[in-house]
């Protein structure tokens, strides 16, 4: 075997191993949940012993799931909007602003992405209590924005670096004031990145548990929080059914992101 062939063999072996690991750790739990949701038993079992949709019907008949889903969607949407505004502003400050503090600001903005959520939760919990905001939508939205904003910051920063800042200068010389230059040039140029960041922010909020546990209340019960509570009290296959629906929703979001990320069809020159 030549050295080149050896490398290729190793690469192929590596790819196979990666695929196996990916399947084992990422795909397997998803498959298990989906299969469990269609069980005809009264408790979570694997492998399935029969096929039934009764647990979907059970979930459908329980209004608590709808309330929680609606809460999660509202909180997710508000988080996305707030993250898009703050993330875009900080991305503009870092990529287009002065040079001295930008690296520190960038690190500071991204930090919550790497910080354990439990630490943010412990910090925010007493603060929200003090502000008498504990258990309100505002508390959950603010908490989620802390962890979701870095995603918008990242995608928008990449979009801003992807084009010549002369475009904005050009708009200014052509008679656009600062806001018009942003609206007519910056926004169209970063639109894709902003939308992707917004979807990411929504997704982060939609499946965030830790902060919701600390900051949400009975009236602001989110879907992951309700799932968590069910998991602790009654382990019925309803959980699997709801989890499967959440998975489906997440796949739709992922599809939207892929669609947005698709490079524009190049016009023939």
């Amino acid at each position: 075997m030549t050295a080149d062939g050896l490398t290729r063999g190793l690469a192929r072996g590596g790819s196979a191993m990666l695929l196996t690991l990916f399947t084992a750790f990422l795909l397997a739990p998803i498959i298990v949940v989906v299969l469990m949701s269609f069980t005809n038993q009264l408790y979570l079992t694997f492998p399935p012993t029969g096929f039934a949709t009764r647990w979907y019907k059970a979930a459908w008949n329980e209004t608590a799931w709808f309330d929680a889903s609606w809460n999660s969607i509202q909180i997710g949407a508000a988080t996305a909007v707030l993250s898009m505004i703050l993330g875009t502003l900080s991305a503009l400050a870092v990529t287009r602003g002065g040079t001295r503090w930008t690296r520190w600001v960038a690190s500071l903005v991204i930090a919550p992405m790497m910080l354990p959520h439990i630490i943010i939760a412990i910090g925010l919990y007493p603060t929200m209590l003090d502000l008498k905001l504990s258990g309100t939508y505002i508390a959950v939205i603010l908490g989620h924005t802390v962890v979701a904003m870095p995603l918008v910051f990242t995608t928008v920063s990449a979009a801003l670096r992807g084009y010549d800042p002369a475009l904005e200068f050009a708009a200014r010389t052509l008679g656009a004031d600062g806001w018009q230059a942003f609206r007519h040039v910056t926004l169209p140029m970063i639109g894709g990145g902003l939308a992707v960041g917004g979807i990411f922010a929504f997704a982060v909020s939609f499946d965030e548990l830790m902060l919701a546990l600390f900051l949400a209340g009975p009236r602001t019960e989110t879907l992951p929080r309700l799932l968590w509570e069910h998991l602790q009290q009654t382990i019925t296959p309803v959980i699997a059914a709801v989890a499967t629906l959440v998975l489906l929703f997440t796949l739709v979001l992922m599809g939207a992101v892929l669609q947005l990320r698709r490079p524009e069809a190049e016009p023939a020159s």
């Binding site: 002369a166 708009a171 040039v185």
Partner: peptide
């Protein structure tokens, strides 16, 4: 103003 890289939108 005319820019080196045209700066067309």
């Amino acid at each position: 103003m005319v820019f080196q890289n045209y700066a067309l939108f």
